[in-house]
Design a binder for these strands. Structure first.
Length: 193
DNA sequence: TAGGCCATCTGGTCCT
DNA sequence: AGGACCAGATGGCCTA
């Protein structure tokens, strides 16, 4: 992935002076251009012109008034680091999204026009694991590990459990499912959403 | 138009 | 010290 190639206000100045952080934030946001694309992945990099947080999450230590810098780095340097940090964060989120995509591909679910949302993906994955665990227990002749409650209110659960039951019927004699599989400690896990 | 979902920016905190 | 992680804020897109 390439670095951002944006002409920024601080590229014009290179003075190592004390600068108000709020002003820096403003400059950083003002820099944002519309969109560009990532050459390596083809992903669109959207940058807002007016976005960004005013009071960022969990950040309570700094006042909104002028704060003094910890070190002697210039405003230009700090903004450069910010951009690099943004880039790393984008990459991190992209890899997280890739992982979600891979998870979507292995979860059996009813085909939909739209793709599964993240929360749906996680919920289905959890249900899938629980249902598979029950299948294993069933094959071993043990008591079911998890109890699905109130499935009528949870269509995803129903879909997943139905799918797993079908799988278990087909693979009822598959010894791979019956040998040396570690099961979670909990005996029940209420299916909530 | 409201609400859901998402991508991105941002700064604090944690970890190596 | 620097990068990873996290969560709040914001705006864009889409759908009912």
């Amino acid at each position: 992935m390439r670095s951002l190639e944006v002409t920024t206000p601080w590229q014009e100045e290179d003075e190592d002076v004390e600068v108000d952080d709020m002003e820096l934030s403003k400059n950083s946001r003002d820099e944002m251009s519309e969109t560009s694309s990532d050459e390596a992945t083809g992903r669109k990099i959207a940058r807002r012109r007016t976005g960004g947080s005013t009071t960022s999450g969990g950040s309570s230590s700094g006042s909104t008034t002028t704060r003094r810098r910890k070190t002697g780095i210039s405003a230009r340097e700090r903004n450069l680091r910010r951009l690099e940090s943004n880039e790393r964060e984008r990459m991190r989120m992209h890899s997280l999204n890739d992982a979600f995509e891979q998870l979507r591909e292995v979860i059996p679910h009813i085909k939909m026009e739209r793709k599964l949302s993240k929360i749906e993906t996680l919920t289905l994955a959890k249900n899938y694991i629980m249902a598979l665990t029950n299948v294993i227990c069933e094959m071993r002749g043990e008591e079911k590990h998890y109890t699905f409650q109130d499935v009528s209110e949870d269509r995803d659960s129903v879909d997943t459990v139905t799918t797993i039951q079908e799988i278990s019927r087909e693979q009822n004699n598959n010894s791979m499912f019956q040998e040396n599989l570690e099961l979670p400690q909990e005996n029940t896990l209420i299916n909530s959403r």
